[in-house]
Amino acid sequence: MAHRFLHSPTLSLVTLALGVLVLGSCTPAPEDQPPGTITLTADFSFGGDSVLVGRTAVDHNGNHLRLETFALYLGGIELLTDTGAIRLSDAERWDAGDDNRWSYSVVPGTYEGFRVHLGVPAEFNTDTDPTIWPNDHPLGVAGSAGLFWSWNTGYIFSKFDGKADTTGGNDFTHPYAYHIGGDANLIEVRLDDPWTVDPCSRHGFSLAGDILQFLSAADAPIDPAIDNVTHTGDNPDLAARYVTGQRATVTLTRNP
């Protein structure tokens, strides 16, 4: 009886159908457990206020600065493990007025830390053709608009420009532009802090920094009245000073 039951055609078909239902579904997870989620937010400020095009602020030298552009790349976003790093994203683009928040699925487990770079990783920078990316990818031709000038100069890692009144008034006619690029100016912002990602858990990391402090915290503080323009290649010393200010003031924290 049992032998005959196991070979029932009806039961075989039902079993086959159930098998097809399971195997034919669209959600075959690569891991056994559901992933956790990491959300990265980047909250840059301008003189303590949110970054808005047209906003004005007074720098450490009393210059009245009007911001017209602030944009940058967050590249090489990675989880750190005891054996290396797991890349979550090659690059994201930060623009004033955008949401500037990115989420990633993460396999459950214990991680040693997290890191972000201010800029574009070397493997995607100069001598790399932006047309290899989808057009609207942050590194693609349209997605990088204003942050890629040619393969001679590569991607612009960060861009802060506008006009100043160096007398502290509101006559904004003096231009300033800090356009940073080049592999040597890639900044790693790293948090070595082991933590565990449980299935379906949510985690947050916050990147923060005040643009005016990029000027004041530089090795040699930058006065836009005097040192007002660098596109990196044309004025590498000023670019390097600006980078030291970025490096000194940008922070990365893990939210509880």
Partner: peptide
């Protein structure tokens, strides 16, 4: 038997 075939068809289509 018919139910089995029906379920199989449903699985193939719906899945």
């Amino acid at each position: 038997l018919v139910a089995g075939f029906g379920l199989l068809a449903l699985a193939v289509l719906g899945g």
